[in-house]
Amino acid sequence: MKFLCLHGYTQNASLFAKKASGLRKLLKKNGHELVFIDGPVKIEPKDLPFEPSQELLDTDMRGWFCIDSNDPETYGNTARAFEAVKAAVEAEGPFDGLIGFSQGAGLAAILTKALPQIAPSNPALKIAILYSAFRLEAPSAQHWYETPFTTPTLHVMGTLDTVVPEERGMILYNCWAPNARQVLKHPGGHYTPSQKPILQAVLAFVNDVIEGKYGGDAEADANAETEAKPEQGKGKEDWSEFDNIGKN
């Protein structure tokens, strides 16, 4: 399968590829392709609702839409995000599925319905994998939630996530038809986990969708939460191959 990957708020394509390295390597090893793209919204330090760290200030911070609810014209407006996705489909598609994290996952959820309108040349999506996903709150986005989502989707949630708490993630999960959703919980926070039990559960979900065995409305791996341990520090890796990911 070929996946379009959408990063979180203040990340970018290159950074998401690094942060999701465990997932990326496992899927690549099993014959899948991941394409990472940059969000169209350039985020400045003044745009952030918190004091950024120096590491964040040194990052090319990107987003998919404005999060300032005081600006009704741009708040939650996905038009530019849709344009970026359409360009990605035309340049590197078609795509079989989506992988998203946080704001990118919230956008990916909508794209499971919107992509046929945005890029009619792309066949219907077969799968979506959403990490720390949430339902968009902007009034302009609410029409997407009027009917259940039906693309087979795995919702990955961190039980210690304080940015997108489990109850917030479940609001979006409940927007899915029961036969098209699974949930996978990990004992961590706001990140894409790389513990082996979690990765294997994600891969099993992908394989089930490919093989038509997907039944929906269950935990993807009942043992993943108890077997996995919080991520520990890792050795240094050579990230130079990712420096130009998502760049034109």
Rank of each mutant, 00 (worst) to 15 (best):
150 T>N: 09
66 C>P: 08
57 L>W: 14
97 G>T: 00
46 K>R: 14
94 P>T: 06
51 E>W: 07
42 K>F: 06
83 E>Y: 08
87 A>K: 11
90 E>W: 04
147 T>R: 12
151 T>V: 15
87 A>D: 11
74 T>W: 04
145 Y>A: 15
105 A>V: 06
78 T>V: 13
141 A>W: 08
99 I>L: 02
52 P>L: 11
46 K>M: 10
149 F>C: 07
33 E>N: 04
145 Y>V: 09
91 A>D: 08
36 F>C: 02
76 G>I: 01
131 Y>A: 05
49 P>I: 06
148 P>M: 15
98 L>P: 00
118 I>T: 05
37 I>P: 00
115 L>K: 01
124 A>L: 14
159 T>R: 15
137 E>L: 14
142 Q>P: 14
99 I>F: 01
101 F>C: 04
151 T>Q: 06
112 T>Y: 02
56 L>T: 04
96 D>E: 03
149 F>S: 01
151 T>W: 06
68 D>Q: 12
158 G>F: 04
102 S>W: 03
105 A>C: 09
48 L>Y: 05
131 Y>H: 12
55 E>F: 12
80 R>H: 12
33 E>L: 03
143 H>W: 11
86 K>W: 07
150 T>S: 13
126 K>E: 02
124 A>F: 03
82 F>T: 00
81 A>D: 02
127 I>W: 01
71 D>N: 14
94 P>N: 03
85 V>R: 00
158 G>Q: 06
50 F>G: 06
168 R>K: 12
162 T>P: 03
